[in-house]
Design a binder for these strands. Structure first.
Lengths: 221, 221
DNA sequence: CTCCTGCATTCTGAATGCAAAATGCTTGAT
DNA sequence: ATCAAGCATTTTGCATTCAGAATGCAGGAG
């Protein structure tokens, strides 16, 4: 057996700071580190069992992602998006998803669209059970899936970054029952538009969904 | 004299890593650090007269901006965007500028629009003198100005990041005379559309401009 | 009693040190 | 002569250390 024959995947070696970035990012998105929380380097280092160097590297990255704010000589604070900032971000996300919609309608395979419909159905189940967290996750994953169907990696990355910034706020805002129901109706329309491969209709649905997302979130701020 | 009376501006204290980020970013965008260049930490530290810690922090940030690539245990390399990546980025930038156009047409004051027209005129002067670098800078600043007129800070930041990634490539691509001329015609149309406050027309002009930017750049890759 | 000043403590920013990984060179075997 | 293995050097990754800034507290003046 030749060596070139076996296709051994390269051993994934994640550097510490990279691991820390994702870990802390998740802590922020999940809300374990709430907005406004002061991040003590020493404490976090102890919890993660690492030295300050990789943590500080990670904090710089998270700051450039807009998740935390660095105050010179005074440490880092988990960023709490202001209402206009949330609106601005939603507007951009809406435009990005509308762009993705055009490409998705063109590029997506029937299988991929079917998978989206499947996610939607699973989401409805969680809605029936009033499982807000799982519902929310699937909700987000539908939007992500549409963006991924565009096949545009830059678009995906940009969308992910922006979404991360306001994920928490959106989750908090989605707590009233009728809002929840409206959101589902909008999703239904999105899927239909995609199944019809009608980019204008899908784009419109996505933009409307974003506008309504703002209305739903606004009050919670 | 009371203390509250004098309005002393707070002393701007930039941390070292922050300074380094902008410095190295500029080096990359200006081309002093060409794509593919291996970044030796030691050498760069000597040049900037700093220790490795702030430089390494800066490199992490630049990697998250997509300007360099970190290879675990093997250092950093200035990223050279692949052709599909450039196209993807241009597509997203086009969508963002089209979005900005809508808001700019609504929000921009007459003064601001006049300033844009002034930049355009200055750009034409550099064109007449065949000063490619200064022409290019003003060209970019028109796009930036339109995006800023949207009043959407998230949009501005996102646009800036994406633009930085392909600035160099775009500059390199804009070297043939007829391309140059076409680009100017498209800019003329953009300004007219803004003066007419016609978002659809401006958006279309921007998208067309991006499509053509791709055609102009494509051959240079 | 209140408020300001000065000092001790704590925390951040940056430099240095150390271990592990990668690179390059030399040497030796075929 | 060619190629590979082993060693020396370089470079990266992370921990530790040191210096400077901010915070909090105590003591003293008004």
């Amino acid at each position: 057996m030749t060596l070139s024959a076996l296709d051994a995947a390269p051993i994934a070696r994640r550097s510490l700071h990279d691991e820390v970035v994702t870990r802390v990012r998740d802590l922020i998105i999940e809300g374990a580190l709430a907005p406004g929380t002061r991040i003590h380097e020493g404490q976090l280092c102890d919890k993660l069992a690492i030295s300050r160097t990789p943590l500080r590297e990670a904090l710089k990255v998270l700051a450039s992602e807009g998740l935390i704010e660095l105050m010179p000589n005074r440490g880092a604070v988990v960023r709490k998006p202001t209402p206009p900032e949330v609106l601005d971000t939603l507007v951009v996300i809406g435009a990005l998803e509308a762009l993705a919609a055009e490409y998705a309608c063109r590029n997506a395979s029937e299988t991929e669209i079917a998978e989206l419909r499947a996610i939607h159905r699973r989401m409805l189940e969680f809605y029936a059970r009033r499982d807000r967290l799982e519902y929310f996750k699937l909700n987000q994953s539908i939007h992500n899936a549409i963006v991924r169907l565009s096949g545009n990696r830059t678009l995906v990355a940009t969308h992910d970054t922006l979404q991360a910034r306001i994920k928490r706020v959106r989750f908090m805002g989605n707590d009233r029952a009728e809002q929840w129901q409206n959101s589902i109706a909008e999703h239904e329309e999105m899927i239909r538009a995609l199944e019809a491969r009608d980019p204008a209709r899908l784009g419109a649905a996505l933009r409307l969904h974003m506008e309504n997302a703002w209305k739903r979130v606004r009050d919670a701020l």
